[in-house]
Amino acid sequence: MAYQNLITTVKDNILYVTINREKALNALNKDTLTELAEVIVYANETDEVLGVILTGAGEKAFVAGADIKEFSDYTGKQGEELARNGQEKVFNAIENSTKPFVAAINGFALGGGLELAMACHIRIAADQAKMGLPEVTLGLIPGYGGTQRLTQLVGKGKAIELIITANMITAVEAEKIGLVNHIVPQADLVAKAEEILSFVKQRAPLAVAAAMKAVVASVNEPDGYQVEIEAFGKCFETADFKEGVAAFVEKRKPVFVKK
């Protein structure tokens, strides 16, 4: 996979994706979003990939927002289309992926950058990272799902406060309110993401995908319970279920085949 704005590699069943626009603080321009959309499709369609680690180049920024110059003269209709396309092809696509995405937040995660991290299933922050949604300082609001996902993660009151004040918060505060799962020193950031995925890689891939689908349905679907029930039932039809049970009875490690 060759990209202009991303560095990608697959190692030990993990797809590493680095947004590589360090001089622009890894800001999300149209080309970068297009490439991210392609990477998400690749991750979902590639059996070798069991998890994804997403980070930014350098130590200063994960993603410090969107490239404002690209849409500074947009009409309302163009703005809606920008948000709709971005949500469908990148942000929602990450959340609805069959593979777990771990955001390794190595620095500033602002605006679209924090929205990108929130779309991931797990967030790990370097101890010096800072996060925020500053859109109202530009006369905008978050448009890539930020108002929805922040509310889901931290609650309505805190989400409103962060969005309408546009204030940044530290990694410590982000962990305190449930915005990130873990804080680690910068040097340990990717290693912590790998540690989490090392456990996931030992589990049944189809069951992992089903579990994530059911959890996401709890906040995005009218009846998440029904989604869970149906996903639970489908697990019984998989070879991985039979292998998992056999391994348990035989007191050995399972060898899952994703079938």
Rank of each mutant, 00 (worst) to 15 (best):
V49M: 12
D12T: 07
T9A: 13
L28Q: 01
A64P: 02
T46G: 03
I40T: 12
N29D: 15
E48V: 13
L33K: 02
D31P: 02
N29V: 00
I7C: 02
N29M: 01
L54F: 12
T46P: 10
A57H: 06
K30G: 04
E38W: 01
N44L: 08
V17H: 13
I68Q: 06
D67L: 02
K69Y: 01
D12R: 11
E45S: 14
K23A: 14
I40Q: 09
V63W: 01
A43I: 11
D73K: 08
T9M: 05
N13H: 15
V63G: 00
E80N: 06
T9W: 03
D47G: 10
V49Y: 12
E70T: 01
K69V: 03
I19E: 10
N44Y: 10
V63H: 00
D12G: 09
A61P: 06
F62I: 06
E22K: 15
N20E: 09
L6Q: 10
D12F: 08
A24R: 15
N20W: 06
V10D: 08
I19H: 05
D67G: 00
N29L: 03
V17W: 08
L25Q: 12
G76D: 08
A27V: 11
D31K: 07
Y74K: 02
T8E: 09
T75W: 09
V17K: 07
D47L: 07
Y74E: 05
A24K: 14
E38Q: 11
Y42T: 05
L6R: 04
G58I: 10
L33A: 02
V10L: 06
L25K: 14
L33M: 13
N29I: 01
Y74P: 04
E38G: 03
Y16S: 06
T34D: 14
I7Q: 08
E45T: 09
G76S: 06
D31G: 04
T18H: 01
L28C: 04
I53S: 12
Y42W: 11
V39I: 14
G76M: 07
L54W: 11
K69L: 02
L33Q: 07
T8R: 04
E48G: 01
F62V: 05
I7G: 00
L82W: 08
G51M: 04
E70F: 01
K30N: 12
E81L: 09
E35Q: 00
Y42K: 08
F71Q: 00
L82F: 13
G58H: 13
L36S: 07
A66Q: 00
L54N: 02
E48H: 10
G56Y: 01
A57S: 14
Q78E: 15
I19S: 01
F71N: 00
V10R: 09
G51C: 06
A64W: 13
K23G: 04
D12L: 05
T9L: 08
E22N: 11
A66T: 00
A57P: 08
E22P: 09
S72G: 03
A64C: 05
V41T: 13
A27E: 15
K69E: 02
G58S: 13
A83V: 12
E70P: 01
L25D: 10
K23R: 13
A27G: 09
T55Q: 12
F71A: 03
D31H: 02
I68R: 03
A83C: 07
L54P: 05
G58P: 14
V63E: 01
